[in-house]
Each structure stands twice: as C-alpha cells, then as structure tokens.
Amino acid sequence: MRRNNRVFKTKDWSPIEVISTAERAFLEFQSAPPLGFIKVNCDAANTQGDTAGGLGIIFRDHNGRPLKALSISQVVSSAIPGEALAIREALMQARELGITNLLVESDNKEIISFIEDPNRVPPLDVAVVVEDVRELCSTFVSVSFLFVPRAMNVIADAVARKALFIMCMTDWSISTPWLDDLCLSEAIGYTHDSHQ
C-alpha cells in the first residue's frame, strides 16, 4: 500500500478506473505491431453442417494501417483446420509480398500451440498444414505468433465471412467501403477507448 501511495500519490484509483485503464492499455498494445514488423490477423469461417468455408487475412503496418486484405474460399472440415489454413496462407502471402518481420495473430489458441511447440503432435487433419507453417517460418528473418481474443480479430473474421459468398480469392482494396468503414470503426474504438 505504501509503495502504491508513493507511485500514485496524486490519484486515487477506483476499481472501475483500474479495469478501464488496463483494457485501454491492452487495446493500444494490440492495435499495431512493433516498428519494423508487419502484423497479419488470420481467421477462418465455415457454415454449420457444410464444408464450405472461408479464410480471412489482413496485413497492417507498424502504425496499424491496413495494407492488404484477402478473402479466400476454402473447403474446411472444422475450425482448427480452417485456422491452420488461414495461417499458412498468410505466411505464403507475406513471403510473396517480401515481408521479413512478421507478427501473426489468431483467435485460435490451440493451433498456435501446435505451431509453436514441435513436441506437440497435431491432429491428423492439420498435421501437414502445421508442418508447412513451421517450414515457412524459416523463410522469415523474424516471425512470431500471438493468440488474440475474438474481439481483437473482428476484421479478419469479417473478411473470412465474405469468403463464404465468393468463388475465388479476393484481394480487397483497402478503400472498399465496407472494409474502410470496419477499419475506421476499429480505429475510432481504440481512439475512443484510449481517451475516456
């Protein structure tokens, strides 16, 4: 208590202020990758009881600005294979773009665990894709994987859901109205949260 009084002597913090400040710090930390890195958010979507699915990928620079967004129609058997395919496709796209330092974010903790831990044996339906991802990692100067909550992956989710209604890969212009609106509302959410 004394240490807290010395550090925060000019302010009495209510529990709500502490939680609100922690949430804002988390959102600010998550919104943009470190300088020199490109961040890619990946997600997969599928329709209930069907193998029709879609992959969503969005790349951002160190300022959090969107660089590229892709929707890819893909047959998926379930969420985990879809998430693995989205990560593999993101790495292949990053390599084609000449990106050397990459931060990969996904809202599927399990697939990230399989990728990062070579001692974990993934299920058969994702084993080949996980091995592909591990091999692709060696083509980058730096690549890291981070689990993010679904709320921090909404644009990749929206782009993946768009893929459910298309027949081929779509490279969305960042100025596409629905995508532009989504990116803007996310940015305003971060800005609004950080100034409350």
Rank of each mutant, 00 (worst) to 15 (best):
H62Y: 11
C42S: 10
F59T: 05
D61A: 00
I80D: 14
C42F: 08
R150K: 05
R95W: 13
L136T: 06
S185A: 01
S71T: 04
R2H: 15
W178F: 04
A160V: 01
G54F: 04
L85Q: 10
S185G: 01
S194D: 05
D125Y: 06
V129Q: 03
T10P: 04
A156Y: 15
F8R: 05
A84M: 00
I72A: 03
G82S: 01
F147L: 03
K162D: 14
P15W: 06
W13T: 11
D171F: 03
G36E: 02
S175A: 07
G64R: 05
A151C: 09
Q30I: 04
S175N: 10
A52K: 13
L146I: 12
K109N: 11
T170F: 02
R65Y: 14
H192K: 07
Q93S: 07
V7A: 08
G54Y: 06
D193Y: 08
E28W: 13
M169Y: 05
R6T: 08
V76M: 00
I174F: 04
S113R: 08
T51P: 00
Y190I: 02
R95D: 11
K162Q: 14
D157R: 05
F147T: 10
L164G: 13
P123T: 07
A158N: 09
I19S: 14
E110Q: 14
A156S: 12
D117M: 08
L182R: 00
A79G: 09
L97M: 09
D181L: 01
V154F: 15
E131K: 12
E17I: 01
F29K: 09
E89M: 00
L179C: 00
K162Y: 15
A52I: 12
R161V: 06
I111R: 14
K109W: 04
E89W: 05
I16L: 12
A25C: 09
S138C: 13
A79S: 13
C42L: 03
A32M: 07
A151D: 13
C183N: 11
P81W: 10
A160R: 04
K9L: 02
A151H: 12
L124V: 10
R60Q: 10
S31Q: 09
M169A: 11
R24C: 08
P123M: 04
K9V: 03
V121M: 11
S78R: 11
